[in-house]
């Protein structure tokens, strides 16, 4: 296949992957960041990175896991950077709209007992729990995505489930 046609086919493939996985990626990022505007930005960045790396697609066995790994890395970098500069951050005109959307998202999340219980977990435990319990990834895939051992994933999933159910039941009582 000529190079140009091949690139077109890969671009088409990325467009299809975007249609299939954008909602899941955005939802994961919204739950991880607890910030809808940031999750939206990171989702966009993720798929732009996927598009830029489309030449790798023929060698990718599990495109969904690959996309999630890119999303997790992008999210991690963004969160670190935001924490580093949070004390300097000024509100701008764009920020106002994003903040109100964010507030409504937060209200939606905090209204739901499951989301509240998830929010009670630190990122270290929330990520493997969501990837395992909500998205159905295997332990080996999660280990690869998070850059930790399979044993560490199992331990975190176990502890996360213990913490989650405690937080959930406590939330129901309240």
């Amino acid at each position: 296949m000529p190079e140009e046609q091949e690139s077109d086919a890969q671009a088409q493939q990325v467009a299809e992957l975007f249609e299939q996985h954008r909602a899941a990626v955005f939802a994961y990022l919204a739950r991880m960041t607890r910030d809808a505007a940031l999750a939206e930005e990171v989702t966009q960045e993720t798929f732009l990175k996927v598009y830029a790396a489309r030449a790798k697609l023929p060698g990718i066995e599990n495109a969904r896991a690959w996309i999630f790994r890119i999303a997790i890395n992008t999210c991690s970098t963004t969160l670190k950077r935001n924490r580093r500069f949070r004390w300097l951050n000024f509100e701008d005109a764009e920020g106002e709209g994003a903040r109100s959307a964010n507030d409504s998202q937060r209200q939606l999340m905090e209204h739901d007992a499951v989301e509240r219980a998830l929010g009670a977990l630190s990122e270290e435990y929330r990520a493997p729990l969501l990837l395992f319990g909500h998205y159905g990834f295997h332990v080996a895939e999660i280990a690869d995505m998070l850059g930790i051992s399979e044993g560490a994933v199992k331990t975190r999933v176990y502890r996360a489930k213990e913490m989650f159910i405690r937080a959930y039941r406590q939330g129901e009582v309240e």
């Binding site: 975007f18 939802a27 809808a36 499951v114 909500h134 989650f164």
Partner: peptide
């Protein structure tokens, strides 16, 4: 039983709605 309940709760969790910028095709985003 608690872990099974957790799995069921997580599976039933409703994903947040997509924002307008992500509802468009990828070509528009690019």
């Amino acid at each position: 039983a608690a872990y099974d309940e957790t799995d069921a709760l997580l599976l039933s969790a409703r994903d947040p709605a997509l924002p307008p910028s992500l509802s468009r095709p990828l070509a528009a985003l690019i």
